[in-house]
Amino acid sequence: MKKILIFLLILANIAFGQENKKSEPVIINADKLEYNNKEKVAIYTGNVDVKKGNMQLKADIVKIFLDEKSDVSRILAIGNVWFQKEDKWGKAKEGEYIKSQDMIILRGDAELHQADNVVEGDEIRYIISEEKSFVDKKTKRVRTIFFPKEKTDGKENKQSK
């Protein structure tokens, strides 16, 4: 039990870390937690809800993998994955964050939304530091819906539908 409490304190300080938001706590609610210290993995199952600041992640299962320094190296969300950060949200059957590649991957009926704009595909990969996205087709074609902005009086306004 003591190892789990230490692990949770470490996790709260490092998971989903952004330099300017390290003081914000990570709050994880789930039906069950299993932590394996030898393999350095925490497995949350059942209605998992992760919150940090203005970011929220929901899934059936969330696995958090730690490296030898107990830093988060990878996060895997499985089943009914849904997330939101500010005005952006997305969903997929599976989501993964890989710290070493600074990448988020959404797999299986993946969708990303920002305002009325949407991109859909079988797999969406996003390299965070480069702000670069790749959308792949495996079973269905990639689809994008976006609403151009119109310029009026030197200002951009979103066109009405």
Score class of each variant (00 low, 15 high):
Ala30His: 00
Ala59Met: 08
Asn47Asp: 07
Glu34Asp: 14
Lys140Val: 11
Thr144Gln: 11
Gln101Phe: 09
Ile124Trp: 00
Arg143Leu: 15
Asp109Thr: 07
Glu39Ser: 09
Phe146Asp: 03
Ile124Val: 05
His113Asp: 07
Asp136Val: 12
Lys88His: 13
Tyr126Leu: 00
Asn29Trp: 12
Gly154Thr: 04
Val62Trp: 04
Lys85Asp: 06
Asn37Leu: 09
Leu106Ala: 04
Ala92Pro: 00
Ala42Glu: 04
Ala30Pro: 06
Asn47Tyr: 04
Gln56Trp: 10
Asn117Phe: 04
Ala77Thr: 10
Thr139Phe: 13
Ile78Ala: 10
Gly121Tyr: 02
Ser70His: 09
Lys32Pro: 06
Asp102Pro: 02
Lys132Leu: 15
Gly108Val: 03
Gly53Ala: 00
Gln18Tyr: 14
Lys85His: 15
Lys91Glu: 10
Lys32Asn: 13
Lys69Glu: 08
Val41Asp: 00
Lys99Gly: 04
Lys132Pro: 04
Leu112Trp: 11
Lys88Glu: 15
Val142Asp: 11
Gly108Glu: 08
Gln18Phe: 11
Leu33Cys: 06
Ile104Phe: 03
Val41Asn: 03
Val142Met: 06
Glu150Tyr: 09
Pro25Ile: 04
Lys99His: 09
Lys32Thr: 05
Gly46Met: 03
Ser70Cys: 04
Val62Gln: 05
Gly79Leu: 05
His113Arg: 14
Ser133Leu: 14
Gln101Glu: 11
Ser129Asn: 10
Ile104Pro: 05
Tyr35Thr: 05
Asp102Tyr: 05
Ile98Thr: 07
Phe65Asn: 07
Val135Phe: 07
Lys85Asn: 09
Lys38His: 11
Asp116Cys: 12
Arg141Ser: 13
Val41Leu: 01
Ala12Arg: 14
Gly90Ile: 02
Asn20Ile: 06
Lys140Thr: 15
Lys155Val: 13
Asp136His: 13
Ile128Gln: 08
Lys158Trp: 15
Gly154Arg: 10
Ile64Val: 14
Arg143Ile: 14
Ala115Pro: 11
Ile104Gln: 03
Val50Thr: 05
Asp153Tyr: 05
Ala110Gln: 12
Ala115Thr: 11
Lys132Ser: 13
Lys140Tyr: 13
Lys88Gln: 15
Asp60Ile: 01
Ile10Glu: 11
Lys132Val: 05
Lys88Asp: 12
Ile14Tyr: 07
Ile64Pro: 15
Glu123Thr: 07
Ala59Thr: 00
Glu24Ala: 14
Asn80Arg: 10
Lys137His: 13
Lys149Met: 11
Asn80Lys: 10
Glu94Ser: 13
Asp153Ile: 03
Arg141His: 14
Phe147Ala: 09
Lys21Leu: 10
Val26Leu: 10
Ser129Pro: 01
Glu86Leu: 10
Ala30Lys: 09
Asn13Gly: 13
Leu76Tyr: 06
Lys52Ala: 00
Met103Thr: 12
Lys91His: 15
Asn20Gln: 09
Val118Glu: 14
Trp89Pro: 02
Ala12Leu: 09
Val26Pro: 00
Lys22Phe: 08
Glu68Trp: 02
Ile14Pro: 08
Phe16Asp: 09
Lys51Cys: 03
Phe65Trp: 07
Lys151Glu: 15
Phe147Ser: 14
Met55Ile: 09
Glu150Asn: 09
Lys137Arg: 15
Asn157Tyr: 13
Gln18His: 14
Val135Gly: 13
Gln101Asn: 06
Ala59Glu: 01
Gly121Glu: 07
Met103Gln: 10
Val48Trp: 02
Val41Gly: 01
Thr144Cys: 13
Asn117Lys: 01
Val119Ala: 15
Arg141Val: 13
Ile10Asn: 12
Phe65Ile: 06
Leu106Ser: 08
Val62Asp: 00
